[in-house]
Design a protein around this nucleic acid. Structure first.
Lengths: 141, 141
DNA sequence: TAGCACTTTGCAACCCGGTTGCAAAAATCT
DNA sequence: AGATTTTTGCAACCGGGTTGCAAAGTGCTA
């Protein structure tokens, strides 16, 4: 488990001043079993206002503490960055969105392929999302 | 160019009864240089209500006349299906979203890779979107 | 420690894309 | 024509995301 000072160290390493809300949000991200949405954080952090969570997340994004991607519905999902440096397309991996339980999975065992774009297109980031049924929903069908 | 009866034939082939609005929307899709959003169609089809365009597009989706994907902002983009049969993930191809001009490109020369999901995950559709700068915006930088 | 500046937070309100209920208009069917 | 079904426009709503603003908190410095 992560003590508060563990988290403070992590945040400091990314150049983020630790506040009470930032510790709460960071902890929620570490304890999540996968990518989480703003709405999920709102539910689990009832003491913190939606806009505050949002601002913490955007701060984390700017400091490469988390990365974000859209699931199949256009909802942003956030995940802690595992790498220490900039967290960009180079560590891109596949995400899976279950259309039954509306849950996102991070399939980080599957890397996105390196790709060759037509002349002139300069990539910054990428998202690769597969929609379908997750193992659980497929069986309970 | 496409005459109205050309379009009517196409729609009939997909099992869609041609109405005035459906012809207008279909024509707008054929004349677009790439994927279009609901907002873009609202702008170009000033005589047609937003909700009507929306309902036409969902009808087209159900009849595999168009397919849709989200660009990098979570906005739906629509494209005419080129294949005759069901338009699903099998003809998946890459899309590029320019963060400067907010325009989506259909890079249909680049096919999405065939992928192997972990046991139990059943794919239905997929989206593969690269964000960055398009050739034009890159030069006018 | 008082006074001042800067940062962070909560609240309310807004924005925008997407979506729906409903009644009017248009097409379809005897 | 009259009855029925489909399509349409309007208005309103929804939900995720975002912002303005004032209050609360933090951290100075004198």
């Amino acid at each position: 488990m992560h003590t508060n000072s563990d988290i403070e160290t992590k945040l400091a390493g990314k150049g983020i001043k630790p506040t009470a809300n930032r510790l709460l949000v960071y902890r929620a991200l570490t304890e999540a079993s996968g990518p989480v949405t703003l709405a999920m954080l709102e539910d689990s952090l009832v003491t913190v206002d939606k806009s505050s969570i949002f601002r913490v997340l955007t701060l984390f994004l700017e400091h490469d503490a988390v990365h974000a991607f859209e699931d199949g519905r256009g909802v942003l999902n956030y995940e802690l960055c595992t790498t220490d440096g900039a967290c960009n397309m180079t560590d891109g991996h596949l995400h899976f969105y279950c259309e039954a339980c509306h849950h996102s999975y991070c399939l980080d065992t599957i890397k996105t392929p390196e790709l060759v774009l037509p002349e002139g297109f300069t990539p910054h980031s990428l998202s690769f999302v597969v929609k379908g049924l997750c193992p659980h929903c497929r069986h309970s069908h």
